[in-house]
Amino acid sequence: MGNEYILGIFTLAGINLMTVLGLSLLTGFTGLFSFGHAGFMAIGGYATALMTLNFHWPFIPSLMVGGLAAALVSAVLGKVTLKLKGDYFCIATLGFGEAVRLILDNVQTFGGARGWPGIPHYTNFWNVLGINIVAIIILANLIHSRHGRNMIAVREEELASQIVGINVFKYKMISLVISAAYAGIAGGMMGHYMTFLQPKMFSLVKSTELTIIVIFGGLGSISGSVLGALVLTSLPEILRAFSSWRLVFYGLAVIFIMISRPEGLMGGYELTPSSMKRLYRNIVSKRSKAVHSAGGDK
């Protein structure tokens, strides 16, 4: 197990993390669930590759184009589906994701189902790390503002949000567009890491996996999403030796998480220096007062 191998796993985890961060905003903070974000990754992936290969743009601006393309498409999707209630938005995103994959399967310009080879290998551990740090800062700053609070309010209680004057549709839209942009950038990084793109990389299973990571990390926790992406990307890689049984256990693990610890690893709490201090203080005071559970549990 060389350095290369470990950096490789972290790079993959970082690419996943980028989408997961966006989904964390959408799902963890706004309360909307998507089964189509692999579709946004695909759009971003193909758009980015188009920029670097056909227009010879540098990598980072091309990634921006990828993110923008996904964002634009998400705005259209959001416009028509965000008014749908509960389950139905989920289903619409599922339909969207599958439609994107099938369209790419059938459009021969980008190689159809056989895929699109020869994409330059621009993605590496360091640019993935840099982009993720920026993405986390943006997300954290957004969440700790009136805009972020409005999204959280929408997650908690839609009707009450309306009544205090929050434009629910607008905030769902902002959340969706940002999450799609993140996914688009992640797709761009993915294509330039694997050096090829293939529609089947962006299947429903991929979308599900992403949402599962967000839930596994804990809804409403950025640090949870980071942990979730690291654990759930590296674990299957490490388990690769067990090849076909890997996904069997994965499926079981998903059910197990849902029925046993649905609040995820972090349960909505953040791992920050101040929260660590608070946790420590709670544990100390718990010792002295012997009251009920500390830190993580409310």
Binding site: R149, A153, L159, G165
Partner: peptide, 24 residues
């Protein structure tokens, strides 16, 4: 219909959003 999982302070602070207009 409160924002159930938020604190008392966060509930009120969220609703105060009207009195600010800074952008994203």
């Amino acid at each position: 219909r409160l924002f159930k999982k938020l604190t008392v302070y966060e509930n009120v602070l969220t609703a105060c959003h009207y009195n600010a207009n800074y952008s994203i």
